[in-house]
């Protein structure tokens, strides 16, 4: 209850100033707030941000229930501060829903309904309407005209760049709404789910949390703790997708995962993808 109230109050607060880089003078002020040694990372990217400033985020910890700020970390604005395009997010979600959906709805045609081979009454002379089969779609208990046939695939591919921008715009809106947290690693002091649940409750991370790590094996404690918590899930970087990010309230990235995502997305944002996008080109001659 309290967490819901706090988050509601937090949302009411309207941020007027855009999120810009915190300079070192501000960092000195935050140092007194808690931890004794802050690591401040200034990064050199292969593709430097040109017109926008890098986003700065706190590196948090997972080994205590109270949040400790371990350092500051820079995120590339092309990936973590992209324009929040709801339409691109929606296209990605629709694509993820449809790509694996096969409709098994099925109806029988007049040929498949049992019976109906004999002409019910002569064509002429009875005074009744002419009919050739008791299973015609006009009849009660007859076949269905143009009904659904099973095994209809809804597969389609979203263009490559729409998929890439879907990831950047979702990550950006998560960060802009304070729903993206960076943690140093996934080491927990205990494997009890209560600890993790309390941590999430205390830090106001919303009920459902998606934890993303660089590797596809996580430390034992966190796997054991999340095993019985259905609303807290772990995922490797290569599994990151728009649907899961939206399904969970909060996205927690490890430091290495955040860097890996940034590196891969920056690569594809600047790569020559004509070969990949050729098959989606319309009006080909």
């Amino acid at each position: 209850m309290t967490s819901a109230l706090i988050s509601a109050i937090r949302r009411l607060h309207i941020a007027v100033t855009p999120q810009i880089r915190v300079y070192s003078s501000n960092v000195a002020a935050t140092t007194s707030a808690g931890s004794n040694s802050l690591s401040i990372t200034k990064k050199e990217w292969a593709f430097q941000p040109q017109y926008t400033k890098p986003r700065e985020v706190w590196i948090e910890n997972l080994d205590t229930i109270e949040e400790q700020k371990l350092g500051l970390f820079e995120l590339h604005p092309s990936v973590y501060a992209a324009p929040p395009r709801l339409d691109i997010i929606n296209q990605n979600v629709v694509w993820q829903r449809k790509i694996r959906f096969v409709s098994w709805a099925h109806t029988k045609t007049r040929a498949e309904v049992r019976g109906g081979g004999k002409k019910p009454w002569p064509q002429k002379g009875t005074g009744r309407a002419r009919h050739g089969s008791i299973r015609s779609p006009l009849w009660r208990g007859g076949g269905i005209a143009h009904g659904p046939r099973s095994g209809k695939s809804h597969f389609f591919m979203l263009p490559f760049h729409v998929r890439i921008h879907g990831l950047t715009t979702t990550l950006s809106s998560k960060l802009a709404q304070d729903d993206l947290h960076i943690v140093k690693d996934l080491e927990l002091p205990t494997d009890e789910p209560e600890f993790l649940a309390e941590l999430v409750e205390k830090r106001n991370w919303g009920p459902s949390v998606l934890i993303v790590d660089d590797t596809d094996y996580a430390p034992r404690n966190i796997t054991a703790a999340t095993d019985s918590l259905a609303h807290i899930n772990i995922m490797p970087v290569y599994g990151l997708n728009v649907y899961s990010m939206l399904k969970h309230d909060t996205l927690v990235l490890t430091l290495s995962a955040a860097e890996k995502i940034e590196e891969r997305l920056l690569h594809w944002l600047h790569a020559d993808t004509r070969a990949q996008s050729r098959e989606y080109k319309v009006n080909q001659v």
Binding site: H13, I14, V16, P18, Q19, T170, D179, D249
Partner: peptide, 19 residues
């Protein structure tokens, strides 16, 4: 971009239900 991102801060969380 900056303005729309800062606007998002005061709006409800983007989720599967409101896109």
């Amino acid at each position: 971009t900056e303005k729309s991102l800062s606007m998002l801060r005061s709006l409800p969380r983007i989720s599967l239900g409101n896109i």
